[in-house]
Amino acid sequence: MIGKLQVKKTIFPALLACLLLCGCMGQVPSEAADFFAMDTAMTVLVYGEDAKAAVSETESLIEDLDRQLSIFNSDSEFYQFNTAGQVLLSSQNKALLEQALELARQTDGAFDPTIEPVVACWGFYGEEKHIPEEAQLQESLSRVGYSHLQMEGQLLSADISGVKLDLGGIAKGYASDRAVQALKDRGVTSAVLSLGGNVQVLGAKPGGKDWTVGITDPLDPGGQLGTVSVRDMAVVTSGVYQRYFEEDGIRYHHIFDAETGYPADSGLLSVSIVCPSGTLADGLSTALFVMGLEEAAQFWRTQPGEFDAIFVTQDGEIYITAGLEGVFSSSRSYEVIAP
């Protein structure tokens, strides 16, 4: 009798502990989807019991936003503005455009949502990218400038004809912000979205560790120059390797300077932005690339705590802003930009 009691008192708790151990070692359910939208390859990975439905909803949301923001979809308000010169914007699109215009003002036009005529002139909307005739480029450039846009209530118009919008500089970041918010509303606490070069993570990894996000090496785009460890954060890179063509040994990339109408020649190869907002990270990665290292560093100093950045110069040197110390790791040497 005593022996049986001992067996019950020792073996059963031990068995229970082992079963709990087995349970703890089980994986959190997850679901992933790979798809194309916004002219790029996207991956959404969601953890949790509701992952399958959440991934499906996220994919649908991003595809809806693609149609809503596309300048090639005749149903979109931005297409209608580009063809008719004016349009009544929905509240959602108006709010997004106001965000774009605020960013344009803050960066003094380094980010400009009216860059479309220049991008079209270089053929970056199609397969036939080319160096444009100078006269054609100057004509296109004359129609660029966010200050030409006028908003009266919901009515968007411009003070000269031929002004066109392209919100592609913030569309993917906006989509990841909206998707993350929708996931939060569903109760999801752990997810990672990779929309082209735009990454946005929700919460931490299952188990509580930070997400590890690689930063593409612009000199070897198949590899990475380092990683950042983040949670609830967007990480967005703009670089010369993403879209370009070469002619006579010169690379012409897709990040245009609205001052010159040419691909920005700022001494940088890539800029990665780390901040909680995907929209801001997306717009700033373009703007700071156009600014160049010195001006971008000064801009960062005027926005304490808003974002951090990783810069790679044409010499292959890496600079990070001070907020990324302890967050960024790399086997290569790098310099820290002080506040």
């Binding site: 991956t43 990779s194 993570v201 990894k205 590890t212 996000v213 930063i215 990475q224 990683t227 990480v235």
Partner: peptide
């Protein structure tokens, strides 16, 4: 050509920006 080749589980990172 809408082609993607990727690791099933990248041994180093969770995503790349």
């Amino acid at each position: 050509n809408r082609l993607v080749i990727k690791w099933v589980q990248d041994p180093v990172v969770d995503a790349v920006a």
